[in-house]
């Protein structure tokens, strides 16, 4: 069953690449506008062999990790507060909903003014793009906790931070993990977008360089890398955690 689906995917992508190759060989558009998959592959190998690709990937991923970590830490704390203290929810909660509607790219000018063209600025954009998704999911998760868990824990003597770390966080975890997943998706878009505009190292910067050099195959090859990293994180890291959490928490 699983093998079957995997085979289907592989065949689909092979056909897609062949199709792409055929179209480029038909020379409808000039080669420097619509490169063949072979040329894009060549470009990938070239940027991999001189190390610039890996340096770009490493830079972007570092920024992503730091930004996402900040977003998760801040979002979890904020979400728990909103869920447990009604007046925090009524005030900060409405602000969170408002801020969430701002695309992370729209934070870039502010980040440049505040942080200059630094890593800090890009990390700021990444974190702010992800934090509200984490907050809202954590809030929903804590709100949906079976009250019997909290009562049983209180009855057995849990209070204050003990209750938060031993019951609220683990009980809300299935929701929180979807928050992390959404947060990661926003953070990944945010980091690439910010790098494009900051034009300061990373995969977004390489995209920009490709554009400046009129090098379409570099642009496409970097886009492919961005997509592959996204698929890998979704498909391996988050899928694994989600499956484990869902079955252990008895949700499937």
């Amino acid at each position: 069953m699983k093998k079957n689906i995997f085979a289907k995917k592989i065949i689909f992508f092979i056909i897609l690449i062949l199709f792409w190759q055929v179209i480029s060989m038909a020379e409808i558009w000039p080669n420097n506008i619509f490169p063949s998959p072979y040329e894009v592959g060549e470009d990938l190998i070239f940027s991999a062999s001189d190390g610039s690709l890996f340096f770009g990937i490493g830079t972007s991923i570092m920024r992503l990790i730091v930004g996402l970590a900040i977003a998760i830490a801040g979002g979890v704390v904020l979400g728990i507060f909103m869920a447990r203290v009604e007046s925090v929810n009524q005030t900060i909660g409405s602000l969170v909903l408002g801020l969430q509607s701002i695309p992370s790219i729209a934070w870039v000018p502010l980040a440049i003014l505040w942080f200059g063209l630094t890593d800090g600025g890009i990390i700021f954009v990444t974190a702010i793009g992800a934090i509200f998704a984490v907050t809202i999911n954590t809030y929903t998760g804590v709100k949906n906790i079976d009250p019997h868990y909290v009562e049983a824990a209180r009855n057995m003597g849990a209070k204050g931070t003990q209750l938060i770390t031993n019951v609220l966080i683990p009980a809300a975890f299935p929701y929180m993990i979807s928050g992390f997943k959404q947060g990661w998706a926003f953070a990944w878009r945010g980091v690439i977008g910010a790098e494009l505009l900051f034009s300061f190292l990373g995969l977004g910067f390489l995209l920009n360089v490709g554009r400046q050099l009129n090098d379409v195959s570099q642009v496409i090859s970097i886009m492919l890398v961005i997509m592959l990293i996204g698929m890998a994180v979704d498909g391996f890291i988050f899928k694994k955690i989600e499956n484990k959490v869902m079955s252990r928490w008895g949700l499937r």
Binding site: H148, A152, R248
Partner: peptide, 10 residues
């Protein structure tokens, strides 16, 4: 409790 209210994460 009626439903046990066991903690599934433990």
């Amino acid at each position: 409790f009626q439903e046990g209210a066991l903690f599934p994460w433990l």
